[in-house]
Write a protein that binds this DNA or RNA. Structure first.
Lengths: 117, 117
DNA sequence: TAGTTGTTCTAGTAGTCGTAGAACAACTAG
DNA sequence: CTAGTTGTTCTACGACTACTAGAACAACTA
């Protein structure tokens, strides 16, 4: 797994890690059972604090994306369902939103509203 | 326009206002040229601080959703294009994501990624 | 048993969020 | 022109979050 962290972003560092793992699992780059780097190691290689990485892992655990166990690390849990429908829908939405001149912000607001209903 | 603010939410108050205006414009509830309440008035009726409302208005201005002018208030700017395609795509995505068991979080992460590409 | 790894604790700095009050400048309506 | 409206800008404060830092601890692995 490739990690790309932007310290200058307004998105919190831990949230960037969370998003990348989510995407990896959704796209199949990260497969169920696969192990994420130990928090200490990932923190060292990304020049972050261990607590920052652990916070990301804990968010992912609370969301059911990974399982955490001492001595074993973070393991991808979610048995990813078939996401071809989702990916197609995402692509269609992105195209339609772009045609309509909607910002990414407004688009995700619409999606959030639709999902919470 | 109906305003619903939840002070207990983890979403910042100003962000809640921003999202509601975005949705109003996208759905056609708020039409181009329509005027939003004066920041002082809206703050008073929602029991917020004027600065909190103004922050929301400024975010919306920076995004081109409204225009701000002293003495005239906040006016809806964006000439909303036809959004039927977008709404259909949003509904399809929400359904597909729900079938696949994706969280709203992960789904919006996918959308954000697709829009920024 | 020894090493690995997440968990928990305290602690400090920096920044954001929201509130608060005040003065100011551009615009509108009469 | 005048008076009122409304966004803009400034300073200030308390509460909270984000991140870093160091340390000890507990559960698991090999």
């Amino acid at each position: 797994m490739m990690w790309r962290i932007d310290p200058a972003s307004d998105e919190p560092l831990y949230a960037q890690l969370v998003a990348q793992v989510r995407l990896g699992v959704a796209h199949g780059t990260l497969r169920p059972g696969e192990r994420l780097p130990a928090a200490r190691d990932l923190a060292a290689s990304l020049e972050l604090n261990m607590h920052t990485v652990l916070r990301a892992y804990q968010v992912l655990r609370d969301d059911g994306v990974v399982e955490l166990r001492r001595g074993r690390g973070a393991v991808v849990a979610a048995a990813a369902a078939d996401l071809s429908d989702v990916e197609r829908a995402v692509a269609e939405l992105a195209a339609a939103a772009r045609r309509a001149g909607l910002s990414a912000q407004t688009t995700t607001t619409l999606v959030t509203e639709a999902m919470h209903r």
